[in-house]
Design a protein around this nucleic acid. Structure first.
Lengths: 340, 340
DNA sequence: AAAAATAATGCAATCGATTGCAATGCGCTT
DNA sequence: AAGCGCATTGCAATCGATTGCATTATTTTT
């Protein structure tokens, strides 16, 4: 087997090129102060020997890691993050954006990291900044980051009171659109399935109320049912609701597509016709929503813009600028589960 | 605002404790050669000042990054990885395992990284080893890693011919179980929906053939329909199949749950009864499978064991041992889409 | 032709932690 | 009292790349 050649260092390349280490370094970074021919030669030799700058040494010297830590918050109870498929989407976008800007991405989940993120990622110089996904129930650790002067941005619900930049969908408007749509379809009594202890879901509940108010419908607090993010939770909650004689319901707004699908399953099992008897709208527009039966009306978030903004704002902050909160518009996707 | 205190270095701590840098370093790592009281004192001072070892400097000196790069391969055409929800599962497990072992996780996608992984992650010392997820269509870059002596493991399909360690589900057996089950339910003519240019899918197709052979049923190559991993692809492919007078079908085995759901949608739209006229089995057991209607029979992979093994084998290899390929057992999950 | 400006390169310090080896101090043996 | 061993601690080199400043070579100016 071809013995892997000894790993080359900059000093090796310099020696081979017959120049000093400093010249080699400058040549490789294409510093114009170095003679063009010399640059060319050094670069050629480096390429020939597959030389790669030692990222660790560079980081140490330049005091920049060119790495961003992405922290995914999981719900402490359910060990579940907000809407899994959505998560993977936005992670992908973030990864792409960071790579495009020359940054690496360090991934961590709150399940594993109960360590203090600031010291672990930032103070230790592992990362130049942080992206926190899923504010979840209000997390003191996030506030702490803000006061510590760590460059970071959050994906979550902007309420307007945060001391840090939050990028997120306009959850309130999304919910308002969804429920207004249900009302327009003739629904008079709409349940809300979602855990309002999550800030994002709380915003959706506000949007739900907005729509009812606008239509002159009384808000019944009993119709707000705390439900975790899973299909299973949606299923169980709906079964229970049906048993609890909430069967005069004619509509359901679920805080995620997974919940909506669980709910739909429960309804269909009970012989309730969707959308004729009960219409349903979800939130997220996961891939499966278009392919369940009936297909699911839902609110689509702009993950692409979200990922881009997160990276853009964070890097701006890292480079001495400001990072601003931003609310992304969402849109309603009409499908069969609500059309009658 | 409270000014963030200047970041402390080991030298600062040493000074504060009135000892040399070397003693401070040893004290912090609890080296017993240092007097217990001294250790105690240094540790206390470090804690008081929130001192964190500079990971970069440590890496440079020790020549270990304690970081593993995880590379997700996306299909070049569809820009899609094998079964998204499955992916997120296994990523989570890997993250947990790595954290437990004191490693960080650097995430990258093949979409972004066309760079050569070996030089980018390994030669540059960014990572001590690599985990590659989703061999996909045979990728020359993976072979290249093997000959370069980089510590890495692959999640994918072990065919028995690889020059590198592959951990993966027993795709062949899973498919065999699924199709045998369909046959037992009375199916005589079962279509295979999946792209056999993916090695993992190829294995599933072999399992499909195994089951047919065992039942004395002739394999019809025309029933193998290349289909990408999405619900949409499953939907379109099934529509086409129906039009193409493959309507004497009485079963479908889909290479992923997403495909299966797409197929189911197409069938239901055409008024085909599932499972009475056509029974369906998928692969993956994603969360939604239990909650679509009819619920989906599928093959469940042991993601947890998979993630654990990947990490375990890789670390063993990094620490001078060997890493071995391994095939994980799968199991069939019976639901409504196939029971008649 | 001397002085000044410009271009190209190299020297040596630096980033912060780790570690082989030497040095110090103390008690104990003979 | 000299010698030895042991427990602690510190010195200084090291990991590899970057960069301020000095140096040398070359060209331009007067």
């Amino acid at each position: 087997m071809k013995q892997a050649a000894k790993v080359m260092t900059l000093a090796d390349i310099a020696r081979l090129a017959g120049v000093s280490g400093s010249t080699a370094s400058r040549a490789l970074r294409d510093n114009p102060v170095i003679n063009a021919q010399t640059r060319q030669k050094v670069q050629q030799i480096a390429a020939d020997h597959q030389f790669k700058v030692n990222a660790t040494a560079r980081s140490l010297r330049t005091q920049k890691s060119y790495t961003i830590a992405v922290i995914i918050l999981f719900d402490a109870k359910t060990q579940q993050a907000i809407s899994d498929p959505f998560l993977l989407d936005i992670l992908g976008v973030i990864a792409d954006e960071l790579t495009a800007k020359g940054y690496d991405m360090l991934l961590s989940t709150s399940k594993t990291t109960d360590k203090d993120w600031r010291s672990y990622y930032f103070d230790s110089k592992r990362a130049d900044g942080l992206i926190v996904i899923g504010q979840g129930e209000h997390d003191a650790r996030v506030d702490q980051l803000a006061t510590a002067g760590v460059p970071f941005v959050v994906w979550g619900a902007a309420t307007g009171n945060e001391q840090f930049p939050v990028i997120g969908s306009d959850n309130r408007q999304g919910a308002q659109l969804a429920v207004a749509h249900l009302i327009k379809q003739g629904c008079k009594r709409v349940a809300f399935l979602g855990d309002i202890r999550h800030t994002e879901i709380e915003m959706r509940y506000l949007g739900y109320q907005d729509a009812l108010h606008a239509a002159g419908i009384q808000v019944e607090p009993a119709l707000q049912l705390n439900t975790d993010f899973t299909a299973q939770a949606g299923y169980l909650q709906t079964q229970q609701a049906l048993f609890a004689q909430l069967d005069s319901l004619d509509g359901i707004f679920a805080a995620s597509d997974a919940i909506a699908m669980g709910a739909m399953k429960a309804l269909l099992e009970h012989g309730v016709k969707v959308p004729q008897q009960i219409a349903i709208v979800g939130f997220d527009d996961i891939a499966m929503s278009a392919y369940c039966t009936p297909s699911l009306t839902t609110v689509k978030q702009d993950t692409h813009a979200g990922g881009q903004l997160l990276v853009e704002q964070l890097l701006s902050r890292i480079n001495g600028g400001k990072a601003a909160s931003q609310l992304l518009p969402v849109k309603l996707v009409d499908r069969q589960s609500s059309l009658r």
